[in-house]
Design a protein around this nucleic acid. Structure first.
Lengths: 156, 156
DNA sequence: GCTGATTAGTTGTTGTTTCAACTGTCAAAT
DNA sequence: ATTTGACAGTTGAAACAACAACTAATCAGC
């Protein structure tokens, strides 16, 4: 079994630490300034981009790469907070759609500048465009590999 | 306030999704094959690299970029599992050192091949060396910026 | 149109992380 | 010597996430 060479090791650790700190901070900024968590924000973004501001739970779960159970719980909290509502799916009796409310849209619009400026300030504006694109390539490859070698992706 | 352009947006989302999936998977592999979580593994790696297999709690927390409280809880669980022990710090009565036990070292040595092969298989071997180095550069920059603009790093 | 297998989503329990409050120690100034 | 403020680490409660067991609807094959 091959170990990582010095450079690979360095890159990997930089990634681990940097990601941990970055996600923490983006989450913190959203919570402090808008009382919204990063997972909640991501869900609202997906809904806002969807046809009619609504998405089936499973689609939503896949698009944010969280387990269905997790999305169920998160959406429940968001529903209690008035950011989304649940609506039965007409075409499939088992289905449930999450719908962004007007209040949710407002919250998203308020929060977006905070989030985007964070992403810029703490990542995008710090690095060369090519390096950022390399990051995109790398994690697209990672995602593909993970979806390929899927160990029981079904019940996530 | 500037939004992200199309490419930046794509890279950012690829990163978000890829990271989520990758971390989930690495954590899952360690749990299933060795009953150890990724945070626990990281702590053991730091201890194993330290002089005498021991590190003060605060140093440990900083080196994995987790909150002190989190490290306290994690180390408590690891202590209960026999992977580490706590030891009072001689030079500073407030200090506590976490020490890797023989059992912990054994667990780490067992788990390391699983972890490294995961990192290779799911990341390192998938991409060009230069792209991986770009990732390293990017997250080094991110880390620096976050440590600079430190919003009360003390109580993390 | 039944039956069994799948799929969608939820639920409750348990494990982990965060947050704020706390204990005890140290160091500097008085 | 004592006070004050900072520091190291822990604690318990609350928020969140993971897991496995569940309900209900659909679909495929007969």
């Amino acid at each position: 079994m091959a170990w990582l060479d010095r450079n690979q090791q360095r890159s990997w650790r930089a990634f681990l630490v940097g990601t941990t700190l970055l996600m923490d901070r983006l989450d913190r900024e959203l919570r402090e300034q808008h009382r919204i968590s990063l997972p909640e924000y991501e869900i609202m973004v997906r809904l806002s981009e969807a046809e009619d501001n609504r998405l089936r739970m499973a689609v939503l779960a896949d698009s944010v790469s969280h387990s269905r159970s997790r999305v169920t719980h998160t959406v429940s909290r968001m529903e209690a907070a008035g950011l989304v509502v649940r609506d039965a799916c007409l075409s499939d009796g088992r289905g449930v759609e999450a719908v962004l409310t007007a209040e949710g849209r407002k919250a998203l619009e308020d929060a977006a500048p905070t989030h985007v400026s964070g992403v810029r300030r703490l990542l995008v504006d710090l690095v060369e465009d090519e390096d950022l694109e390399a990051v995109g390539r790398v994690f697209d490859a990672v995602t593909d590999a993970l979806i390929e070698t899927n160990p029981a992706m079904d019940f996530r």
